[in-house]
């Protein structure tokens, strides 16, 4: 049997499949507590990444006709993205463990020959202390790159850095899945 087909970059012109409304996962009338997740993407020089496709996927609440569980958002000229969705709850982890509430994030862009995968957790959630992934990242600065910070009621922010900077800026934790 052949192995999985190889990945290639999404390139700079993926906006032909962009539908801005996809960034609002509540548009089909999902019930639940609405939150926004915004943030920026910067490269190794600290410059904004202005042509990325940011994808958000959450396994909770379960997706159905009123909630796709998946969204896509472009980064703008400042490298900023913004999603509106339903706040996820905890989901099962390995063994008997619970995972803290989180979003899965996939980044696609010119210069990325395959997706960069990361997660966004909610800073201050008590379940973060025992979450298996967060616990596996020992450096607190690196662990912090997985934590969205509150910016006001139901508004969260996660800034993503693709590459360590020349002055020791912390690179976002990317996942081998």
């Amino acid at each position: 049997m052949p192995s999985a087909t190889s990945s290639q970059t999404i390139g700079p012109f993926w906006h032909l499949i962009e539908h801005p409304e996809w960034a609002d996962l509540t548009r089909f009338g999902a019930a639940g507590s609405k939150v926004t997740l915004s943030g920026s993407i910067t490269d190794g020089d600290g410059n904004p990444v202005t042509d990325a496709a940011v994808e958000l996927w959450q396994s909770d609440p379960p997706s159905d006709e009123s909630f796709p569980g998946f969204g896509r958002c472009r980064t703008d000229q400042r490298g900023e993205f913004r999603f509106t969705t339903i706040k996820p709850g905890p989901v099962p982890g390995r063994g008997n463990a619970q995972q803290a509430p989180h979003f899965a994030i996939a980044l696609h862009a010119r210069g990325l020959l395959k997706a960069l995968m990361t997660r966004a957790y909610f800073e201050g959630d008590p379940l973060n202390e025992t979450d298996q992934l967060l616990s596996a990242v020992e450096d607190p600065r690196r662990r912090g790159t997985l934590l969205a910070r509150p910016e006001g009621k139901d508004r969260w922010r996660l800034d993503i850095r693709l590459q360590r900077g020349p002055h020791g800026e912390t690179e976002t934790v990317f996942l081998d899945i």
Binding site: D43, G44, D45, N47, V49, A109, R110, G111, L112, L113, L116, R142, L162, Q163, R164, E171, T172, V173, F174
Partner: peptide, 8 residues
Amino acid sequence: THKRHPQE
């Protein structure tokens, strides 16, 4: 890829 690949 130069400025966009993870180093960690």
